[in-house]
Design a protein around this nucleic acid. Structure first.
Lengths: 207, 187
DNA sequence: GCTTTAAAAAGTAACTT
DNA sequence: AAGTTACTTTCAAAAGC
């Protein structure tokens, strides 16, 4: 019947319109965060999967888009914190986190907790630190992980402390304030993590 | 102190219970007559009454139903309800002598006595019963089906068990977690 | 889902001294 | 840099938006 066709067309239009809006949102947020294309594409796949499983019901397109982008960053090993995603979204950090948990579970994303190591490249380039300093920071974090110095600590704080230490070891010292700035944590946090790493990893530093 | 007997470290930190003390209550007059009462209908539909003796906070509703929170033992919870009943009777309200209540949630703390690696637990335990986002919160959230409680595990080995209805739920939860950790060689 | 209550855990944040 | 306060997470009930 004609009615049926009109309805299909209407639904189809709405669906396409919503998808187009979601994709433009993903692109807008990704651009604001300077994310590479593969992350945007991953986010688009996550979003489409969420739509296919009707996970949008009762949720805002923007919320799901933001959660999809957050998940995509983690899947691609270029994590952004919930706060960073929230900064370029109109949705609150709390809502993004809640939606992320939901789609993550429903889509079976099985994402492991974010590793501090994944933050090293971004933070180091933000501090103009060479690859050698970067490698040393990664090594410090690897050891820290083995010695249980990362349990319960914020990944960004631990990564920042490791970078602070490696920048000194590599003769390219960055102040706690500079590192804190790019890592988005306070100097107090860097100090606490740094003291812990320094004493438990016998990485003696002469200042 | 409790290093070798996690079960002896169990401590009830808070009990939430509900009860029905009468058929209906006039909250505005209650709020004005009770000393430590607080009432802002715009903010919350119930009267908030804080008791000092057993340090308990009571939420009193117009339906005659009440919620008690803050009790650290079932005994103090009972005493708190009795005191609330007496205070209402002192205001000339008919309140039954033997008030009954229902425990809705018990929050218990415990200590495994040994630090634990949350990352390894996050990998070893059933992924869909666990949530561990150190960026957001330092504790690992573990949802058990039996007993039906939620446990927060910390790197220090300390735990918070919540959602239980009886004290025994916390003990069983700790027992189960201890065996699961030893089965995985994580403790 | 939100509002209000209470309480612990450990990390991080924001102020004040 | 030390202290203090406060917020993150979990839970449940209540009446109503």
């Amino acid at each position: 019947r004609l009615r049926k066709w009109q309805r299909r067309i209407r639904v189809s239009n709405a669906t396409e319109r919503n998808l187009a809006f979601a994709l433009s949102e993903l692109d807008r947020m990704a651009s604001a965060l300077g994310l590479p294309r593969n992350v945007r594409e991953t986010a688009a796949v996550v979003y489409r999967d969420a739509v296919d499983k009707n996970l949008i019901r009762g949720r805002s397109i923007e919320g799901v888009a933001a959660a999809a982008l957050y998940a995509a960053c983690r899947q691609c090993s270029v994590p952004r914190t919930l706060d960073e995603i929230a900064e370029v979204s109109r949705v609150s950090r709390k809502e993004i986190g809640r939606t992320y948990r939901f789609i993550s579970r429903e889509l079976g994303l099985k994402l492991l907790p974010t590793s501090p190591i994944d933050y090293v490249p971004r933070f180091c380039s933000g501090l103009n630190l060479k690859g050698e300093v970067q490698s040393r920071a990664v090594e410090i974090l690897r050891q820290a992980g083995e010695r249980e110095l990362t349990s319960g600590r914020g990944p960004t704080g631990v990564a920042a402390a490791a970078i602070y230490i490696s920048s000194i070891l590599g003769g390219e010292r960055r102040t706690q304030r500079e590192v804190a700035e790019v890592a988005g944590v306070t100097e107090v946090t860097i100090r606490n993590r740094y003291k812990e790493l320094a004493e438990k990893l016998d990485v003696e530093i002469i200042l | 102190m409790n290093e070798h007997k996690p079960e002896e470290s169990l401590k009830i930190e808070n009990i939430v219970a509900s009860a029905k003390v009468t058929e209906s209550l006039d909250l505005p007059s209650l709020a004005s007559q009770l000393k430590d009462a607080e009432y802002n209908k715009k903010r919350f539909p119930g009267v908030v009454l804080r008791m000092q003796d057993p340090k308990i906070a009571a939420l009193i509703f117009g339906s005659g139903k009440v919620v008690l929170t803050g009790a650290k033992s079932i005994d103090s919870l009972s005493r708190g309800l009795e005191i609330l009943g007496d205070q209402l009777r002192a205001l000339g309200i008919d309140i039954p002598e033997n008030l009954t209540y229902k425990i809705q949630n018990i929050v218990t703390s415990a200590d495994l006595g040994t630090p634990i690696n949350l990352n390894k637990i996050a990998v070893g335990f059933n992924l869909d019963k666990i949530e561990y986002e150190p960026e957001q919160f330092p504790g690992l959230v573990y949802r058990l089906d039996d007993p039906k409680v939620v446990v927060l595990l910390f790197g220090s080995g300390k735990l918070i068990i919540t959602g239980g209805k009886v004290p025994e739920d916390a003990r069983r939860a700790v027992q189960r977690i201890l065996s699961e950790l030893s089965n995985l060689g994580l403790i």
